[in-house]
Nucleic acid binder design. Structure first.
Length: 199
DNA sequence: TCGACGATGACCT
DNA sequence: GGTCATCGTCGAA
């Protein structure tokens, strides 16, 4: 298994659905207060800018919150949901094209003790890092990391060559309001992993 | 200003 | 299966 750190150019591709699929099996790292945590991404969702009713920036909606999504790919979009949960997205595509990938789950690898502490949990189980709110909390991410690069020494992603991945596609979670776009198969997960929020 | 509501998760039965 | 905590953002007034 080889590893390569992804560069911003990787995230500036125009095909967010392809990128979301590719990220399954890649490794996400954060280094917060010199504590390194990492894991293998097991679940993602694609949000395709203005043509996607589920995306915050659909129809070119431009507000203070969504402005970060219009930046060139390779930075984080983190926002608060239900007043409680921070959701971690990666902005993709070129400047002006507001695409993003939501990271919904990963499989813990390094720094599990730090993640347990952040999540106030006694031991490792599936709920540590499945579900987008849990992902951000385990990695130590919050809205202070909004708009920061995901190709930096604080947050980065490594390409891996992992043959045991079996990718399944499905509809996205929690976006019933998006009408026909709610049916798009833009959620991807690794079938062989336990660390997936919904099957 | 203000009211409605959400890309959820934890805990209960 | 169901309930509910909890608050920033947005758009209407």
């Amino acid at each position: 298994m080889t590893s390569d750190r992804l560069k911003p150019k990787f995230f500036q591709s125009g095909n967010v659905v392809n990128l979301a699929r590719q990220l399954i099996g890649y490794k996400i790292y954060t280094k917060i207060n010199s504590q390194i945590t990492s894991g293998v991404i097991t679940e993602t969702e694609a949000y395709a800018g203005q043509n996607d009713k589920a995306c915050h920036a659909h129809l070119g909606r431009f507000t203070k919150r969504t402005s970060v999504m219009y930046e060139p790919g390779g930075i984080a979009y983190i926002y608060l949901c239900y007043g409680i949960h921070h959701l971690f997205n990666i902005v993709t595509n070129s400047k002006g094209n507001a695409d993003a990938i939501l990271i919904r789950a990963f499989e813990p690898n390094l720094g599990i003790d730090h993640m347990l502490k952040r999540r106030s949990k006694p031991k490792l189980d599936k709920t540590l890092t499945s579900g987008p709110g849990n992902v951000s909390q385990a990695l130590g991410l919050n809205k202070n990391h909004n708009k920061k690069s995901v190709c930096s020494d604080e947050i980065w992603i490594e390409k891996t060559d992992n043959p045991s991945i079996e990718i399944t596609e499905s509809t996205r979670i929690g976006i019933d309001y998006a009408e026909e776009d709610a049916k798009l198969p833009w959620r991807f997960y690794n079938k062989t992993s336990k660390f997936v929020s919904v099957r």
